[in-house]
Design a protein around this nucleic acid. Sequence first.
DNA 1: CGATTCTTTGAAAACAGTCAATCTGTGTGG
DNA 2: CCACACAGATTGACTGTTTTCAAAGAATCG
Lengths: 192, 192
Amino acid sequence: MFSVFQKYLLDKIQLSSQELEQIEAVIKVKKLRKKQFLVQEGDVWRYNAFVSRGFLKTFSIDSNGKEYIMNFSPENYWTGDRESLASGSPSRFNIDAIEDSEVLLIEKENFEMVCNTIPQFNNLVNSILQKSFVVSQNRIHANISLSAEDRYQDFLDRYSAIANRIPQHMIASYIGITPETITRIRRNAVKK
Amino acid sequence: MFSVFQKYLLDKIQLSSQELEQIEAVIKVKKLRKKQFLVQEGDVWRYNAFVSRGFLKTFSIDSNGKEYIMNFSPENYWTGDRESLASGSPSRFNIDAIEDSEVLLIEKENFEMVCNTIPQFNNLVNSILQKSFVVSQNRIHANISLSAEDRYQDFLDRYSAIANRIPQHMIASYIGITPETITRIRRNAVKK
DNA sequence: CGATTCTTTGAAAACAGTCAATCTGTGTGG
DNA sequence: CCACACAGATTGACTGTTTTCAAAGAATCG
């Protein structure tokens, strides 16, 4: 629904009703059932996508069928493949729904038009990119400096609000360890 | 020297001589000797910095004095702490010179002014941020999906142009392994 | 309920880290 | 120009962490 997005926008920037209408006019709503793909590896991704309801994940699959989760996207967050969007190259990632979800799609050209005509919107987009970059820097720092146990704890600390919506094995994938290791970390933690 | 930066800019965007002068007017040159700090943990970082000569690294230090390298910045790349710059919070990282270097500093306010008055410059800045994000996503993917050996090989593949300017133990730190492990990887590789 | 997904277990093996010592090359000051 | 210090790389033995594999147990959903 557009109202979720509208609330999100008005919470962050000032927009006239004309501007809101302009944005609403370029939005396509897409509903996804649990496990349904939004993007599959090899697709070219041409949208910006706002999650208005549900929960998605971005991941790759290696030759053994093992999943590597790059990102979680709950409602009120953006998703998509920036690399494919920017370069027009086929996506190296898959995005699918962990829960029944709804995403608002804005096609690349329309999105750029909105950015060009509404400066506040453009600023918002850049500040999101800025924040995404900082988040990924923090994750890299965790990856190169922390043990499996500390990365798990770090994940719970940072994402306590959504951790209980995510199966353990997906958290494991996100932080780069096996599900069994998480089980053992938890077992040891209980002991203490 | 400004000429390096000018060449970099003109290679990427069109600028009139007035615009170039406007940029030159806000630049401060800072020379750094090998091992000299540009930023230390706890400092507030208020600049955008372009490396016109030399080679810097961004890193944190843990309580045992161990270094974790977040980034390498050779000439023609940008450096600095985006998080501190954006939020005004003290930096969690250090930046120092691996080689004798020269950086061009633009203060935050001046940088924003240039962004606001020269749209092409603003676009360039955003596209750099975009690319930085993609690079960090790729690094995360390597961290969570590859073994030590494969991460090392991946690093050499991606950064063959600068790998020989970086001591082994710094590559080790960047990819999140110990220097001894790199030695052993190399020993095994020679065998084959 | 039955099927599926998710989590837990245990034993073994692989992987990477730690520590201390040695080796190597480089550069600097006397 | 040499001696020395210093940073970096290598080695070996050992330790500890994490993965792998296969199986069984719990939880969830239609």
